[in-house]
């Protein structure tokens, strides 16, 4: 049943690319999440409106549709706009870049909600105290708020990561050679769909298990200075 006919190495390569796309997208999602949370908690109505629209739209539309829209829609939009100004340009998105940006953009919306909750979980008194001892708003953010945000955000970010890494399978639709697409190629050659897709699913399960263990470690680490009842 688990005779992979020499295609095991290909799945292994795919797994590495899956992890790479996932990690790059996570970094982008965290950055967008911080930016989005800043917008949502901002005093400016424009920033709140932009951040609110971002999370509302992204969380209401399926990932697959967004991937198709960004991967196929962006080049067409650029080309059409350029054509209107009398230029001929040809834009081809690299699947890796497009996949990373799309996933980062989608899960940035989920990270925004996580960070918003985390920022609000920081006691206001601490920020007031920091301002009272003469810290500038930026210094208070850097020294007081950001180091603590991670502690409140970690459980939520862990969930975002778990959903994100599973969503990387959708990138196979835009022909990036990650785990799912490599399995499809192996299936095409060997005609053993169940064997390969089941192996791939076990690899994803492995990522989930390792992520869960790491998450527990991280949470213990980030809570090391907190007294527990």
């Amino acid at each position: 049943m688990f005779d992979l006919r020499g295609y095991g190495w290909m799945l292994w390569e795919g797994l590495q690319l899956t992890l790479l796309v996932g990690l790059c997208a996570l970094v982008l999602a965290v950055l967008l999440g911080l930016l989005g949370a800043w917008g949502k908690l901002s005093r400016s109505a424009v920033a709140r409106g932009v951040a609110g629209t971002y999370t509302t739209v992204v969380r209401g539309v399926p990932e697959l549709l967004l991937i198709l829209l960004i991967f196929y829609g962006t080049p067409t939009l650029i080309q059409n706009t350029a054509a209107r100004w009398g230029h001929t340009v040809r834009v081809d998105l690299d699947p890796f870049v497009a996949g990373t940006i799309t996933l980062g953009f989608i899960y940035g919306a989920f990270a925004t909600e996580v960070f918003r909750g985390a920022f609000q979980a920081i006691p206001r008194g601490q920020i007031e105290a920091a301002r009272a001892v003469g810290m500038s708003r930026f210094l208070a953010l850097r020294r007081i708020v950001l180091p603590q945000v991670w502690r409140f955000a970690l459980p939520g970010l862990g969930n975002v990561w778990m959903v994100l890494i599973k969503a990387t399978a959708l990138i196979s639709v835009i022909q990036l050679d990650e785990l799912m697409r490599k399995s499809q190629i192996a299936v095409g050659a060997t005609k053993l769909p169940f064997t390969f897709y089941f192996t791939a699913s076990l690899m994803y399960l492995g990522i989930t298990i390792v992520s869960m263990l790491l998450q527990q470690r991280f949470e213990a680490w980030s809570n090391r200075g907190v007294r527990r009842a």
Partner: peptide, 23 residues
């Protein structure tokens, strides 16, 4: 529950639709 929550839906879909062909 662990299997179905820990693997991507797309893999599950392929496992049922294409994978059944192996049997």
């Amino acid at each position: 529950i662990f299997y179905f929550r820990g693997t991507p839906l797309l893999v599950q879909l392929f496992l049922v639709y294409y994978g059944s062909g192996q049997f």
